[in-house]
Design a protein around this nucleic acid. Structure first.
Lengths: 155, 155
DNA sequence: CAGGATCGTCACCATAGCGGATAATCAACA
DNA sequence: TGTTGATTATCCGCTATGGTGACGATCCTG
């Protein structure tokens, strides 16, 4: 892990900057969430399930940009940890409604605290106006329409 | 690829925002560079080699956060395309000095134009002050010292 | 020259995510 | 009502990516 300070040719490249900012955050994120036994992606799933009711796997995955097949293993893992439960939808028995268990809700709460604290530390080198500006800027970049879209994780 | 507009619970998460901004840029990047027959990572290597003289594989990799073993296959690919050449360092015959060929220099030039144009498009939804502010902000985040560091690509 | 570190290489392994096929179910419709 | 076509979840397997560990060649130190 010889990390030279980003060399001049790279420090102005958006690709380099975004990738490394993302990697660094990922690193911090897994460190912060490890004690809670989940990763950033799982936490995002819990948060989405908490925010909306009666989501099927596909619907939840759609909100996160997670592939249908990936959702299977993801929900498997969360179910093993007893943080969510699958339940056949009575309206449409093809669908698996995924619901938080009480333990899942609690875990979500605790892990969210850890995540927020982690983000705070991550943004510490910035002034608070720069920090909020960064979030707003990223929002407009991510929200803007482009040629193609695709995704997977979060944290 | 049902991309719902980022749901409320996610749009304020740094992890989600950084990841998806990065994914979107990656997408645009490969689209922009495809006609030039290289990817963002290879372009970054060419740029680093161009900026510094007499870099060994390890040294070049270090600047980009690319593992030594990954550099082997990367340089293999670039050498196959005749964009770089390996040369044993006379000073230290363990080292492979990697040099741009004339074709490599030309390719670098062309691809750099494409990349810059791509970045311009990518940042188009932002005002120009927001755009430069974003770059500066990311620089201070990436440059700031954290617990651990690690990396790989760019574009 | 001996011992230990460094560089490049290779063979192997881990992880993530996606494409394709399948079974169950639904919706549409003749 | 029976058939057809789409949809949901699941499984299997491929691919891409990157990293680990061992190895030979080389260097440096004493």
């Amino acid at each position: 892990m010889t990390r030279d300070v980003p060399p001049e040719v790279l420090s102005s490249r958006l690709g380099y900057l975004l990738k490394h900012a993302y990697l660094r955050l990922t690193e911090e994120s897994s460190r912060a969430l490890a004690p809670h036994g989940i990763d950033g992606r799982e936490l995002a799933v819990l948060a989405v399930l908490d925010a909306h009711d009666e989501l099927s796997q596909l619907e939840a995955g759609g909100k996160l940009g997670i592939d249908r097949t990936t959702m299977v293993t993801l929900v498997d893992a969360l179910e093993d940890k007893e943080l969510v439960e699958r339940r056949r939808s009575p309206q449409d028995r093809r669908k698996n409604i995924v619901q938080l268990t009480p333990a899942g809700r609690e875990r979500l709460h605790d892990a969210e605290l850890a995540r927020r604290e982690m983000e705070r530390r991550f943004l510490a080198p910035l002034s608070s106006t720069d920090a909020t500006r960064l979030v707003r800027t990223l929002q407009s970049l991510v929200g803007a329409p482009t040629n193609a879209d695709q995704a997977s994780d979060s944290a």
